[in-house]
Design a protein around this nucleic acid. Structure first.
Lengths: 118, 118
DNA sequence: GTAACTTGCAACCAAATGGTTGTAGATAGC
DNA sequence: GCTATCTACAACCATTTGGTTGCAAGTTAC
């Protein structure tokens, strides 16, 4: 079932924006496989820790990951529901496309020009 | 890394970047329903025509839409294959997530820290 | 031809992105 | 106590983004 009747535009913006960076997609992949601390993540890339912190923050604001305290460490984990939401978002576009193709087929079958619409 | 066996990283960047803007998602929705000229699209928004041109250009570089000349008009149309590609990209993340949940379940059931798969 | 319309492109500007360094607060271990 | 580590946050900088205006080129209509 759909999580909600449709996330706000800004929510969708954040989700796609978060996924529009290779480092962030890689971070997401890593924490999906296993939750880990920010510094552990930072060790995997050739950039500074604050840079990784920012990427995690972007993913967090998009709701794709969350953080849990374990002593002095802060483990980053994936948020599966939101990931599925993102996929379902793309599903809607595919549904729209199928609809258009069906309309075009009907148009070609009846062989009538429909240019007087606008 | 693991997720990437399809399009290049930059391609994926462009696809998600293109979808990370409400105006561009709306343009995509419109041209999926019916192909139309750039100026016709521009008439639907409260921004200048060059701004809409830029949005279309971003969608075009991402491969989500294409353009066809009809006299002096340039009709923008959707590229369904690429839209499906984007959705399948998200599918892979969901698969990874399911994998991780299955591993966690096995972990909790057997109560041992080894996460080797069957 | 001239005029009107559609498009493309360059220059410009404000705001956001993605990175850096530096500083400061908690927590674990000595 | 002191020290080292993990994290957060602020300031700063270069580049990109999203918008503007203005101008040039191609196409249609007169």
């Amino acid at each position: 079932m759909v999580v909600d009747s449709g996330p706000a535009q800004e929510e969708i913006d954040r989700i796609f924006q978060a996924l529009a960076d290779g480092t962030r997609r890689d971070i997401l992949t890593r924490v999906i496989e296993r939750e880990q601390s920010v510094s552990a993540l930072a060790g995997a890339y050739r950039m500074s820790l604050p840079a990784v912190q920012k990427h995690v923050s972007v993913l967090e604001r998009a709701g794709l990951v969350g953080k849990t305290r374990h002593g002095r460490e802060q483990r980053v984990h994936a948020e599966p529901d939101r990931i599925r939401t993102a996929r379902e978002l793309l599903d809607r576009y595919e549904v729209l496309w199928r609809h258009r193709v069906a309309a075009m087929d009907a148009l070609l079958a009846e062989e009538r020009p429909d240019r007087s619409k606008e």
